[in-house]
Amino acid sequence: MSNTDIIVGEVVGTALLILLGAGVCAAVTLKKSKAQNAGWLAIAFGWGFAVLTGAYVSAGVSGAHLNPAVTIGLAITGGTEWSQVPLYIASQFVGAMIGAALAWVAYYGQFQAHMADLANQPEPAETEGDAKAGPVLGIFSTGPEVRKPVLNLLTEIIGTFVLLIAILTQGLNDSGKGLGALGVLITALVVVSIGLSLGGPTGYAINPARDLGPRIVHALLPLKGKGSSDWGYAWIPVIGPLVGGSLAALLYNVAFA
C-alpha cells in the first residue's frame, strides 16, 4: 500500500466519518435544527452510519482504519507495518479536523442562532458532568456525565476493546487491504451497539482522532460564547482507546491468531 493511498483514504474517510458524526450531534443539539432533541438513538445510529460511510469509501484505498486505536491494533497483530503507523495516524487527525470544520460550516446558521439564544438566557447551574465543558463542545468531542477519571478511562478502554476485537476477528477481504463490504457493515453495527450499550458514561469516543481532532477545531473556532474545550479531560479519550485497542490486539494474538 503506497503512502498516497494511506493519505487519501484516511483523510477522506475520517473526514466523512467526523462530518456525519459531528453533524448528527449538531442536528440533535442546536436551535433551529429540524432534528433538535431527536435523542440518543439518533446519535448512536448517526455515528454508526458515519462509520459505514467513511469506511466504505476508504476500505479499498487505505483499509479504512480511520482510528489510531485500529491502526495500533493492526500493527500489533501484524496487519499493518509499524513504519506506516505515523502516516496513518497523522492522516486520521487531519481528516478529523477537516470533518469537524465542515460540520461547523454546514450548521453555521444553527450555531449562530443557538449561541445567540444562550446569550439571552441566565447561565444554568453547573453539574459535575458539564462543569468544565463549553455549551457546544459535545458536538465536537466527548465528555463524562460523571467526572471520575479512572472510571471514565475504564469505560473508554472497554468500549474500544469491544470495537477492536470485533474488527480483528472478521479478518481481511480477498484484496488483503482491509475489511470487505460485509465487514464494513458489521463494524458500523458494532459502533451502534457500543453507543447504545456503553456510550452513556462518556459518550464513547473509542477513537483518539475522533475526539482530539474536533476538540482542537472547537478551540480554534471563532464562535462567541463557545466556552472551554475541556483540555483537562482530553487525555482520557486518547489514552483509553489506545489501551483498549492494544489489549484487544494482544488477546487476538493469543486466542484467535
Rank of each mutant, 00 (worst) to 15 (best):
G99R: 13
L196W: 10
K34A: 11
G54V: 03
V12E: 01
A125I: 14
V191Y: 06
I158C: 05
A69G: 06
V243L: 06
Y56F: 14
L251N: 00
P144M: 06
G200T: 12
P135N: 05
P222I: 07
G63A: 03
I18T: 02
L151F: 14
F45H: 08
S33N: 15
V85M: 11
A248K: 09
Q84K: 08
T187L: 15
I167T: 14
E10T: 01
I98K: 09
N152Y: 02
E128D: 15
G46Q: 07
Q36G: 01
G46C: 09
K31E: 14
L189N: 13
A234P: 03
P144Q: 01
S58L: 04
I165N: 00
Y204E: 08
G176S: 13
G240E: 00
A55V: 05
A64I: 15
G203V: 09
T71V: 04
S193R: 04
D230Q: 01
L102V: 10
V254I: 09
A116E: 13
S197H: 02
V28N: 11
Y108L: 14
A50P: 06
V105G: 05
N120D: 14
P149A: 04
F93R: 02
C25N: 15
G240P: 03
A27R: 09
S197L: 03
A106F: 08
G159S: 13
I206G: 01
P135G: 08
Y233I: 00
V192M: 11
Q92A: 07
Q110I: 02
N207A: 07
F111S: 01
Y233W: 00
Q121D: 05
S193E: 11
E128V: 14
G138C: 00
T202H: 02
I7Q: 10
F45C: 12
K177L: 09
V191L: 15
G159I: 03
G95T: 05
T142Y: 04
V61G: 01
Q36K: 05
I72E: 04
L52W: 11
S83I: 13
I158R: 03
I72G: 10
K34N: 10
T169R: 11
G183C: 15
W47H: 09
V28I: 15
G227R: 00
V162Y: 06
I167R: 15
I139S: 02
I89D: 06
A35S: 14
A219K: 13
C25Q: 05
G176C: 13
K148I: 06
A96E: 02
L172V: 12
V11I: 10
R147E: 00
A219P: 07
G199A: 01
A219C: 04
V24N: 01
A64D: 08
T155G: 10
A96T: 12
I6R: 14
